[in-house]
Amino acid sequence: MSAKLQTLKVGLFGTPLNSLITVVTVVLLGWVVSPLLRWGILNATWTGTSADCALGIGGCWAFVGAKFRFILFAFYPPALQWRPLIVMVLLLGLLVVTAQPRFWRKGLLVAWFVVIAASWMLMSGTLTPSVVPSNQWGGVAVTLFVWLVCFGLATPLAILLALARRSGMGGLRTLAIVFIELMRGTPMVAILYVAMLILPMAIPNGQLIDKNIRAVIMITPFWSAYLAEVIRGGLQAIPSGQYEAAAALGLGYWRTMQLVVLPQALRFVIPGMVNLAIGFLLATSLLAVIGIFDLLNAARSSATDPQWLGYYDEAYLFAALIYFMLCFGGSRYSLWLEKHLHRPECR
């Protein structure tokens, strides 16, 4: 028997208490999973119309098939839905490239700006005829766009905030502390209402700003405050000998941070940053409060169609599956990156 199987056997049945917990857990899972299996697979309706689903006793996955494009693209014109599809491919491709350390060069920053700008122009119709207003955007493309833009902008801002909070300059440190604690003490819903109601009043001459841009402007500093605390924890984990060695080599403050401290600190906080990234992705569902049709809001609205009224369970389960694939992929990537960047600890 392999070591892993032996460890699993001991963990499940190593003691009478462990054996009892294992048996009770299996019984509870059987009690819960069995009806879900019958509802979701065995008795489900996979094709047909809403009338066919009404005759069945299981889940109506024909609804997901009928509303698949709406959940992905919301109200975007059907004839132009190839645009958000290309945007989704571009954004996911950018994620895949960014996730590989061999591409961590200055050119990657240029790629971020190019992909984000191209995605915006493609969605709005700047690059091709037929302009599509942002109130028709929605679904997975908008969720990915807002998430990537906000997280991408929040990361460098968070690094500066973390450095400022550890600065020896009292005024700068105080400002950083006030900003971080104020943002972390404010609900994200309140931040979104500020983006919707307060921010437009601060714009001179009554100019209007796209609601997606308003969301990015307010969410970015909000997320940066949380990221800053995670990065500050990584900075505190760096031994003082690293600073002393950099000073002995004649490196200034910024060169020390760039070449010595930040690479190690960011490596220490990979799990925390990925955890926050996953949480931020799930938090994009709150964009519905300012009228942005993200993935979850599009799924909910799809079940209000009079022809498919009331199939909320199927809609939410499909949206949950998409969220799960993105989040589970991120968690597995975090484990891989930790092992890939593992280095002997220096003192």
Rank of each mutant, 00 (worst) to 15 (best):
S301P: 02
F328A: 13
W308P: 10
L337P: 05
S334Y: 01
S301A: 14
Q307N: 14
Q307I: 14
E314V: 02
C327Q: 02
D313R: 13
H342S: 14
F318P: 03
D294L: 06
A319V: 01
L309R: 15
L335I: 10
P306R: 03
D294M: 03
F318A: 06
N297F: 07
S301M: 15
Y316S: 10
H340T: 12
M325P: 02
T304Y: 15
C327A: 11
F328V: 05
T304S: 14
K339D: 13
D305P: 05
G310V: 03
F318C: 03
M325K: 05
K339V: 04
A320N: 06
S301W: 11
R300Y: 04
E314K: 09
L309K: 15
I290N: 03
K339A: 14
S331D: 15
W336M: 13
D305Q: 04
F328Q: 13
S302Y: 08
G310I: 06
L341E: 04
Q307Y: 12
Y312G: 09
S331H: 15
L296I: 08
H340L: 10
A319D: 05
A315G: 08
L335W: 07
L295F: 05
L335G: 07
Y312K: 11
L337K: 04
H342M: 12
G329D: 11
F293L: 10
L335K: 15
F324Q: 02
S331L: 15
R300V: 02
A315D: 06
D294E: 14
D313M: 10
H340M: 10
Y311I: 01
A298Y: 04
L341P: 08
W336D: 10
Q307E: 15
